[in-house]
Nucleic acid binder design. Sequence first.
DNA 1: GATGAATGAGAATTCATTCAT
DNA 2: CATGAATGAATTCTCATTCAT
Lengths: 199, 199, 199, 199
Amino acid sequence: MPIVVDKERKRSEILEAAMLVFARKGFHRSKMEEVAAAAKIGKGTIYEYFDSKHQLLQALHGYMLSKLKDYYAAELKDIEEPPEIIRRFLAAAVASFREWEPFFYVFCDVWAEAGRAEQQSLLRIQLRDAYRSSIDDLMLVVEAGVAGGFFHCERPRLAAEHILACVDGLALHWLYDQDAFDLDEMTEALTRMVMRSLG
Amino acid sequence: MPIVVDKERKRSEILEAAMLVFARKGFHRSKMEEVAAAAKIGKGTIYEYFDSKHQLLQALHGYMLSKLKDYYAAELKDIEEPPEIIRRFLAAAVASFREWEPFFYVFCDVWAEAGRAEQQSLLRIQLRDAYRSSIDDLMLVVEAGVAGGFFHCERPRLAAEHILACVDGLALHWLYDQDAFDLDEMTEALTRMVMRSLG
Amino acid sequence: MPIVVDKERKRSEILEAAMLVFARKGFHRSKMEEVAAAAKIGKGTIYEYFDSKHQLLQALHGYMLSKLKDYYAAELKDIEEPPEIIRRFLAAAVASFREWEPFFYVFCDVWAEAGRAEQQSLLRIQLRDAYRSSIDDLMLVVEAGVAGGFFHCERPRLAAEHILACVDGLALHWLYDQDAFDLDEMTEALTRMVMRSLG
Amino acid sequence: MPIVVDKERKRSEILEAAMLVFARKGFHRSKMEEVAAAAKIGKGTIYEYFDSKHQLLQALHGYMLSKLKDYYAAELKDIEEPPEIIRRFLAAAVASFREWEPFFYVFCDVWAEAGRAEQQSLLRIQLRDAYRSSIDDLMLVVEAGVAGGFFHCERPRLAAEHILACVDGLALHWLYDQDAFDLDEMTEALTRMVMRSLG
DNA sequence: GATGAATGAGAATTCATTCAT
DNA sequence: CATGAATGAATTCTCATTCAT
């Protein structure tokens, strides 16, 4: 099925282009034409792959989530001990700020968009499910840590939520005041505080 | 004799109207006409008070920041002990999620806008300075707590940043999955973890 | 009747203000508010003296025509000989370019406006009558010159028209390329050619 | 395959439409939508060919100047003797009043606009250069006439300027009082007076 | 009379989307 | 399939005019 492969590749190229354009100018200030130009295709061609600008954002969001998932999977591969998983997760998270900066800008757009969408909108569900699933994953680690005697934690789910909230909040603050932070320091301090908060 | 109008009051009315409209529909999907209707004035009148839609958002952001500041000042009035300040701050923060929900939606718009503005744009500077000043305030509390023997903390500034990041991250997550959280539980768990992370 | 005098004075002040503002920015780009500011009165006050922006232009046009008439009357006072009248008229005309430059800019607006107005519009009639009356005046001079043996001219009316057209045309060209002309030279050459063309 | 369109032709069609609309209603009173309707295209399409309303006027001005140039070139083709060139030029000029009446209305708009534009504005430069170049051309004719013993003229440039000013002034007067003129008579009288003024 | 706050009709311009080629 | 010319709904912002004081 060479054609299918080709389509899939072009789709990804459009998504990568959209990510850069949206990240730089913001979703609403970006034109479909700019995305097309960045993807080196014609404006109309985007519509062969995506239904609308909104759906392009949705697809891009899904694409980013999947990339993030792969990223964390790779970073946490073969690590067994819960405390170490947490440490590596936090380090990977902070490292991703710089490495994947455009992602975070686009996430701002997604937050702004999703917040006003219908409860049942795909974007919103996608966003929510991504959080829920991240929380679930992290909760299992916390639980394993508790079971293994590494952590003290009455509410593993809330602890997981707490950790993810920290990461998102830090990403946000860093985005608007990059000079104020040293990422290495931030990693260290974040790790220390999270580990302490887990007992 | 010209008509005498309390310009400051009308300005606030427009800002309140803008907050509700922007919160519900999002900045870009809101029309100036809708803001005007919500403020019960004519479309053109907004421009007597604000230069442009963008500047209205900026002014609204400033207005919200000032309201938030007053809110925390009132909530933390007369509290002396650092641990208690932190506890009350966290409780007030979580309580504000529900109470001031529209604020948080508008903050999403501000994040999305500010991220793409010039470094020197007023919106961006306003956002950054608000964070910096919040961090400063909180850092002083942490330092006082360390001095008073309540807390252990090597880097009070990073601890303060960490606490604020938690709050913002939780606000964000809560916004998109309100059913998943019990705010009382969240307050309790957040407080516990923050207190622990401060040693 | 002191009140009447006062009203008349303020009316003139508004007209002078309008002239400067219209001359600088053009009729359509000028705001009533700017005219009011230039006249140091409130925006609404203009409407006590003029019905509308269009009527203000019309009144300004009439005001300018009347000023021009006075100017020429003063310049040509007590001159008897037709050739000398012509000479002095041409000199006065060219001198007015610089002296009354704003007039000419406003005339451009009047031409642009009047051209699209109804045949019966006051602005158009005013413009036409001013030309007709100027031509009549000048024609009488030419006729007197012919009768006095100074000029040869089969069609004094057309000659008068010709002379006025020259003056208007020169004003227009001068307006857009002031550096290209030396007004003294222009006066001299214009006079020479007109005198020649009158035989 | 993209749609193939003769962009140059469509551009001209828009310019012709703009000329008629602007001539009838005036630049400022014409809406882009009316121009589009006259060109039988959608409102947005104009912006595929021109950046703004102002630039459309500028382009239209250039288009008109080029048409006029072609017109005179055709009218004066193969004529050698300077007096005959002048005669034919004047006849062509007066004939153009009726034939190309819309042009002259639009010129009024251009005069009004250009007068308030920056010195370096394209419209202004275009206008000035057109005059300069017309004067140059006519000056060469006058000089040739002097050299050939047909004319007496101390300042050929000023004579050329004078002749063009007459033509523009007559056009202007005619525009607002068409009934007062017989164009044939005007041609004859104009020619006579110009020839006399050239000695 | 004078004022300037309020207004809303109006217009330029943008840009997601369509669809003929 | 791909394209980009064409479109017109949508939206910001302007400003002449009104009118309460």
